[in-house]
Design a protein around this nucleic acid. Structure first.
Lengths: 197, 197
DNA sequence: GTCATTCTGGACTATAAAGTCTAGAATTAC
DNA sequence: GTAATTCTAGACTTTATAGTCCAGAATGAC
């Protein structure tokens, strides 16, 4: 070993992630990344590879961070349906400042070249993970008799994935807290009614 | 007047729109646009201005086309709630081939520079229009006693906007018809239950 | 025919951005 | 001190692509 790194790669990655999140891949220049991350060009290339590699690392980091938080919250909260409520109303409150950025992975999906299989696979994998987290929570809800065993948990999990994506997209356009709360309230109504076939 | 245009500007615009829709703004090169639209560089610049102007025209065209279709369908169908069902299940079926492109305006929102006020305003305006169309349909639903006068129509309209955006985002990632149908079915359940406060 | 306009096709320019390279200073282990 | 590594700072190259320009042919109104 010789001279150690002077910056924390994880913090730098988090900074990069935030910039990609705010601006999108194309609108984020290396110049801006260097400035935001507080490191020079060379360090960036040495540590993370090229811009695309950094972007992929940022996507993975985002995925792990957000999924970790959600999973933790859903595991710890006693009432599962309340957990989902917290999730959705949380989204509705995250409207100020930084948070009207939608979802980094959602953006990544929509701005990616359709032929870009690497990003596509990362995103699909993420969707599976989120669905799995939701499914696990919903299974506990059945066990705790919050939900009926007759409910289609897979469908519910997917419904929430879709709702969250939609809310985040809307939040990026119009950070109107009240509208988002209304939407959250309606979405949560799926817990309280029989689903028609 | 001298020599008239040999191509139909609207058809050309539709072609351009489709390409932007599939690839996104940044991934769509002038080269590709010229080829897809079937016209030469000069004609393109003469008729539409620069790339960005063409893009904005494409966004507006998309908005008018899709909103027109939706409004027409919702006006013509006797049962309004059935109209919404048709809308959502329609999205679920549009998974093959061309249609796994999500929503052009949604993509535009997520890939735009946050400082880009022109696109932002166009998108906000569109959201208002869609909400208005939905609201109008829902008002008719109340008049026809499909819905109760106590229902919060504005909230319902927004809920469907969000759901549709979410479904389209999901469709772009994973064109799984069955999943989308499940989501549609759950979303439509909001018509059949009292909403908690 | 003349004039105005549009067409094609390609050459050309301008620009922005990614990525590479260089040189020298700083830091740590030995 | 020496060797290994990382740092900064900036010059440089490369590449992609948007945008401009030009020449000549085609078309239609008059």
């Amino acid at each position: 070993m010789a001279r150690p790194k002077e910056f924390d790669p994880e913090r730098a990655l988090a900074k990069a992630m935030n910039l990609f999140w705010s601006l999108g891949y194309e609108n984020t220049s290396l110049e801006a990344l260097m400035k935001e991350m507080g490191i020079a060009r060379q360090s960036l290339y040495d540590t993370f590879g090229d811009k695309r590699a950094l972007y992929l690392k940022a996507l993975a980091y985002y995925r792990d961070q957000t999924n970790g938080q959600v999973q933790k919250m859903l595991n710890e909260i006693p009432c599962v349906t309340e957990g989902f409520a917290k999730l959705l109303f949380g989204l509705a409150s995250e409207t100020r400042g930084q948070h009207q950025r939608g979802c980094l992975l959602l953006s990544a999906n929509l701005q990616r070249d359709p032929k870009d299989a690497v990003v596509r696979d990362l995103l699909r994998d993420n969707q599976s993970r989120v669905e799995a987290i939701f499914l696990q929570a919903l299974a506990r809800a059945v066990k705790q008799e919050e939900l009926s065993p007759k409910d289609d948990l897979t469908a519910l999990a997917r419904f929430f994935v879709v709702t969250i994506q939609g809310m985040r997209a809307m939040a990026r356009l119009k950070s109107d807290k009240k509208s988002l709360q209304q939407v959250a309230r309606l979405a949560l109504a799926v817990f309280n009614c029989r689903i028609p076939h």
